[in-house]
Simulated scan of single mutants.
Amino acid sequence: MAITPLDLQTMFVRLNEVGKEQNHLKEAVASQQAAGAKELKEQELQQDKSVNKTEEDKEAQKLKDEGGGANAGSGSQENEKKDSEAERPPKKVFSDPDMGSHIDISG
């Protein structure tokens, strides 16, 4: 396929526009990277200024979540515990009738 002089004229006219588009595409990648770097830097500055929780605080929170704390458990969890206890058959415990009534002083 041969290029005619008329085709060359239209190509040369559009050459400037194509160059600008290519330049914008190259700059878009660089500007996106710069914006991402700026956002990351702002996040790091915010973290430096804020008070961070220590590992001890996180472990204490885990213990509270597992039921070790005074305020542990929500109403739904307590209801689930009550339901599970009600569904289980009562445990049979052996009790000695003489236990606690005799005191051995012989030593």
Rank of each mutant, 00 (worst) to 15 (best):
K41H: 13
E66I: 07
E21A: 10
K38Q: 13
D57F: 14
R88W: 05
K92N: 04
P97Q: 07
Q43Y: 07
S95C: 05
K58E: 03
R14I: 03
M1F: 15
A35I: 04
A86S: 05
S76Y: 11
P90A: 14
S31R: 09
S84R: 06
G107I: 07
G36F: 03
H102G: 02
E42A: 13
V13Q: 10
E59S: 03
D48V: 12
L8E: 14
Q77D: 07
G100T: 05
L15G: 08
Q47V: 09
V93N: 04
H24A: 11
E42L: 13
P89V: 01
S101F: 12
L63V: 12
G107K: 15
S84E: 14
K64H: 09
G68H: 10
D98Q: 12
E44Y: 09
P89A: 13
S106Y: 03
L25G: 08
L15Q: 10
T54R: 09
A2W: 05
D104F: 04
D104Y: 06
G19D: 13
K91H: 03
Q32E: 11
S50M: 05
N16E: 07
E27A: 15
T54F: 08
K20L: 03
E21T: 02
Q77V: 07
Q9W: 02
A60F: 02
E42D: 13
G100E: 05
G68M: 06
E27T: 08
V29C: 00
G67K: 06
S31D: 06
P90Q: 12
P5T: 10
R14A: 12
E55A: 09
L63D: 10
S101R: 14
E56N: 03
H24S: 07
D104E: 11
S84L: 11
Q32Y: 14
G19T: 12
V51R: 08
E85H: 00
P97G: 09
H24F: 09
E55C: 00
L25D: 11
K82H: 02
Q77G: 02
K91A: 15
K91C: 00
P97M: 06
S95K: 14
P5S: 07
E59F: 03
P5I: 08
M11Q: 15
M1Y: 12
Q61K: 13
D7M: 15
M99D: 12
P89T: 11
K81Q: 10
E56W: 02
H24C: 02
S95F: 01
G100V: 05
T10N: 13
E39S: 15
K81I: 12
L8I: 14
K82F: 01
K49L: 09
E21G: 00
Q22I: 02
P97I: 05
L15A: 14
K26A: 14
K64R: 14
E39W: 13
P90N: 08
E59R: 14
E78R: 15
Q46H: 06
A60Y: 03
E42M: 11
S76R: 08
P90C: 06
N79Y: 04
G75L: 07
E21V: 01
K41M: 11
G68Q: 08
E39R: 15
V29L: 13
S84W: 03
T10V: 15
E87Y: 01
E55F: 01
A60N: 15
I105Y: 10
P89E: 15
A37N: 04
Q33P: 00
L63F: 08
S101P: 00
G36W: 01
N79P: 00
T10D: 12
D48C: 08
M1H: 11
G73D: 01
Q46K: 13
R88L: 10
